[in-house]
Each structure stands twice: as structure tokens, then as C-alpha cells.
Design a protein around this nucleic acid. Structure first.
Lengths: 102, 102
DNA sequence: GACTAACGTTAGTTATGACTTACCAAATGG
DNA sequence: CCATTTGGTAAGTCATAACTAACGTTAGTC
């Protein structure tokens, strides 16, 4: 159920870059924005989407806010994709078997 | 590299439904559209996007076209998501270790 | 060789969402 | 306290993309 939000969140290229930076190391917003070709508010908005999808958590550190990747939502997405993958493999195997019969 | 297109392709809810139907069994366009609240051309367009992302293959069967899920693109997406997942887990473990030191 | 079935394509509309600029809030340092 | 740093929020703009309706296309069928 939640994996759909994670999928949608990671579908945007810029937002995926934001997430990958957070993944590499917990960072404040300003630092993330400094390495990207978009403004800081844009990064803030992306982080909100990532947070709503459960992919990211927020830690207030004084006036800064560290964003940290959350493995759980990513794990659910992983499981969903893997289930689809297995289903595709099974379907392919079944089709090959049908082919063999002839 | 291709996993980004797969990610974008699966981010749309309707398109994900289309893909899951194809995943369950190879089907012609009309049959897919019959079970969804959108028109047949819309399904055709979704299938084109899925095809460009490598998630789906096309088999012409006379006047019909069977769409079949392709495990490969799904496998690449799976690998990419799994890599991110592991990275998130590693980061979390490292943070817990730091916590222990204090 | 028309007719039909099944489908892709095009054009046009509309809604969504990514982005920037300007503004506001909270915490820290002098 | 006042200024600075850091960052979220609001409003507005613009591009993208999802959808429908109409049309074109190909392969079987009588």
C-alpha cells in the first residue's frame, strides 16, 4: 500500500537525486541544494514528498534539520518490486514450457 | 540506467494497473481496457510507455497484439532498489554504532 | 474486394506537479 | 534583544502528461 507512494516519490529525477544524497549521508537541506541545480525551496518540497512517502526522516539539530533515509519504506518497495519480478519470471517459464510441448 | 524509465513508467497508478494485468497473464489491449475505467487508446498509450521502458514486449497474433511482461527490466529495477535499500540499512547501522560509542 | 474486428496515432483539452520568488518562523551568537 | 543562519510555506508560472474523441491501419472473413 505504501510502496506506491515510494514509487511515485522516486519517479522524479531531481527528487531521486535528493534522496540519493540523503542516502549517502544525512544532510541538512542547504547542503543538498548546494549540489543540485535547483533552489533550496525546491529541495524542501522534494524532501516533504519523500517524508510523506516514508523514505526519509527528519532530525532537528538546533536550527538545522538533518534528513535521514528510512530503510523500512525502501524495504517495502523492494519487496513489491521483487514480487512483480518473480511473477514475470514465472510467467516466462510457463510460456517456455508451453513452447516445449509442441 | 534503464531502471529510471521503469521507475517512471510504474509511477502512474493507471499504468501500474495495466502492467499488473499483463503480469498476471499476456493479454490483448481490448481485454485490459475492458477491466479498467479508461478508454482503450489510453491503455494503448500506457502500453507504449511500458514498452519503451522495456517492461513489456509485444507479440502480434493476427489482428491482435499480446502484451507480455519482460522480467529483465524488472530485474534491473529490483537490483537498483535493493542497492538503495542496502545502503540505507548500512547507514542506519553505522548511526547505531556511533550511538553506542557514547 | 467490401466488411469487420482489433489496435495504434493524432489533436486537443485539462489537470497535475516541479520550480522560483517572496515571505515567515525558529534557534543561535554577539 | 537584535541580527544572522537555516529552513519551511505560499502564490504564481509553466511544462508535462494523462485522457478522450476522431481518424487511419492492418489482418482476417464473407
Amino acid at each position: 500500500m505504501t510502496y506506491q507512494m515510494a514509487l511515485a516519490a522516486l519517479s522524479d529525477p531531481t527528487r531521486r537525486q535528493v534522496f540519493e544524497r540523503v542516502l549517502a549521508a544525512p544532510q541538512p537541506v542547504g547542503l543538498i541544494a548546494a549540489g543540485l541545480p535547483v533552489s533550496r525551496p525546491a529541495v524542501s518540497q522534494h524532501l516533504r514528498v519523500l517524508k510523506e512517502a516514508g523514505l526519509v526522516d527528519e532530525r532537528r539539530r538546533g536550527t538545522r534539520r538533518l534528513y535521514v533515509a528510512n530503510p523500512q519504506a525502501l524495504g517495502e518497495l523492494r519487496a513489491a518490486i521483487e514480487a512483480m519480478w518473480r511473477e514475470a519470471l514465472a510467467g516466462m517459464a510457463a510460456r517456455i514450457d508451453e513452447e516445449m510441448e509442441r
